[in-house]
Design a protein around this nucleic acid. Structure first.
Lengths: 337, 337
DNA sequence: TTGTACGCGTTATCAC
DNA sequence: GTGATAACGCGTACAA
């Protein structure tokens, strides 16, 4: 009925014990070279593949790792995941994808599910807040391999790969100020989201640094296009409009630009614009958008590599915190005034 | 050492056999209501979670499904996956993500890996070609649950969810012709990719239908931005330039637009443009892009639902082929001439 | 070098 | 209603 070939089948076929077959297939010593070849050939012919579940029962490994992020439909995350896959695939690790949708409850259930599936480790861009914190702390306490990327929870002893969000905002503000701007507004996400908090802080600090007399203006778009649209609309209906807008991520940028266009304003003639995240469309936009660019590939590759290191080097080193630098890419969406 | 609570632990704690605990936890009949509650509470307290590997050994299910696609960094796929997750999560199924990168070898290894991990089924947008075909045919033969989405392999008896690519191109050409265009070029992917072949055919057929005297012009960009850029550049350096360009997917659009801009041409004044796929940026582009839009959400939801149906309804119905309709969304990137 | 036998944590099939 | 116990397929200590 279930004609998936098993160790037993190929053992019977070759006329040896399953132990020998297992050893041969796993390149373990203790099998005659002659016999090994014969076994390998038989395995090939029958189309044998290990049952990773059964193997996992013994070895306590599954070669599977879980990844938790807000939503894969956010191109930033999609790009990061893609670069993670690049390093995981050659090492034969698989990725179980989990959208948390900024929902702590969902995040919790996914983490539990992942561990009950005995993933070897998890890559996580946590939702944030109390729930995330205790969840991750508990995971670390139980010796789970876990690496944060994009977002971290402070005070947890685990590997992390993030960018210096404040520096990103600093560069943007400095550039804007150099171009003569003072009334610079920021469309952020909200304070539950680590990167939004950091970017907003970066914005506020830099404003204070360069323009101590100017009152910072922040609108909250929840990292959602629709909310960012509304938030930006409000921002721009204000009596004294900002001359420049800074966004906190790519979805925010879309919403903000949509609002700008809805009001019949042009970039950069009527308002200057700097977006966070450099996606392909930003560079072909009219005008090409000046953006704060994250090293997307490096984030993914580094995070995945850090996790792999846990599996391959048994020595439990202390957690590594990798801080990557964003880069201001100057194009044509900022007007000199 | 490995202090993950097991059935045995909570059995010992409550003073009952593991069989009873198992029954209680799985809501199976045959446990006194009193005792059941006691067991549930104990499980809760110790933080017990089933070992899905061990369960899978017995039940032959893993509540895990594999998804194979070209590259998750393509926003179209990311969106589809996100909508799949929406229907899978409530049913407690997980997704193992596999990028095939249009590489038949990689696809094959991933499929084998997935089956050796005993996924309950797979969702696949196949690479195409001989390798994909025999791979999928073999999978179906072995009673594997498999549903195609976005791309299918003809002649294989399995569920499939695709759009009517030809109709999409037809609508676009009709509109272009109505706007007075004759010299309409198409930037396709290549002939290994199902959707590209279909879209190119749709383009050619529609051209023949509406403009029997005009020679179709097709360039191949391999669904990659860079190649599409080069292909479009060639197209436009031709002595008699097309007056309109039609692309075959979103990455192609980016490359094509980049080429148009590189030549200093404007949309739609110098050249009209219709793209395939309607991503957020297309509608805020200047000018807003006329596009052939796919029902991304429906594709994902339908494909995932079809797969779930296999698990939940034991009756093996005949394969369902779902054909969705794309929609021409008219914005401002086509000039009337 | 090779084989035997046990255990990984569950679920299912028997008994009681 | 409850408890032993046999699978599930594999890896491995131990014996030969």
């Amino acid at each position: 009925m279930d004609n998936i070939p098993k160790l037993k089948d190929i053992a019977k076929q070759v006329g040896v014990s399953i132990a020998t077959v297992s050893r041969a297939l796993n390149n373990k010593p203790g099998v005659g070279p002659e016999l090994r070849k014969k076994i390998l050939r038989a395995a090939e012919k029958t189309g044998y593949t290990v049952n990773i579940l059964a193997r996992g029962m013994k070895t306590r490994t599954t070669a599977t790792i879980g990844i938790l992020l807000s939503d894969i439909s956010n191109p930033f995350f999609a790009a990061v995941v893609s670069s993670m896959e690049k390093v995981l695939y050659p090492r034969h690790y698989n990725l179980i994808l989990c959208n948390t949708n900024e929902n702590p409850e969902k995040e919790k259930r996914y983490v539990n599910l992942l561990f009950s599936k005995h993933v070897d480790g998890i890559l996580i861009s946590p939702v944030g807040g109390r729930s995330s914190e205790s969840l991750c702390r508990e995971a670390v306490r139980r010796q789970r391999k876990i690496v944060f990327f994009d977002r971290v929870i402070k005070g947890i002893e685990a590997d992390a790969v993030v960018i210096d969000n404040r520096v990103g905002m600093y560069e943007a503000i400095r550039y804007l100020v150099n171009q003569g701007h003072k009334k610079i507004a920021c469309v952020a996400g909200n304070n539950n989201i680590y990167t939004s908090t950091e970017r907003e802080s970066g914005y506020r600090e830099s404003m204070k640094h360069f323009l101590p007399d100017v009152q910072p203006v922040v609108a909250y778009g929840n990292y959602r296009e629709k909310d960012s649209y509304t938030a930006t609309l409000n921002l721009l209906s204000n009596s004294d409009r900002p001359t420049a807008i800074l966004t906190a991520n790519n979805l925010t940028s879309i919403g903000a630009i949509r609002a700008i266009k809805a009001l019949g304003m042009r970039i950069p003639e009527d308002i200057s614009f700097i977006g966070f995240d450099d996606l392909a469309w930003a560079s072909i936009y009219s005008p090409p958008l000046t953006v704060i660019s994250q090293p997307v590939d490096i984030i993914g590759i580094t995070a995945a590599s850090l996790l792999l290191r846990h599996f391959e080097e048994p020595t439990p080193e202390k957690p590594q915190k990798v801080l990557l630098k964003p880069e201001l890419i100057i194009r044509n969406s900022v007007q000199k005034i």
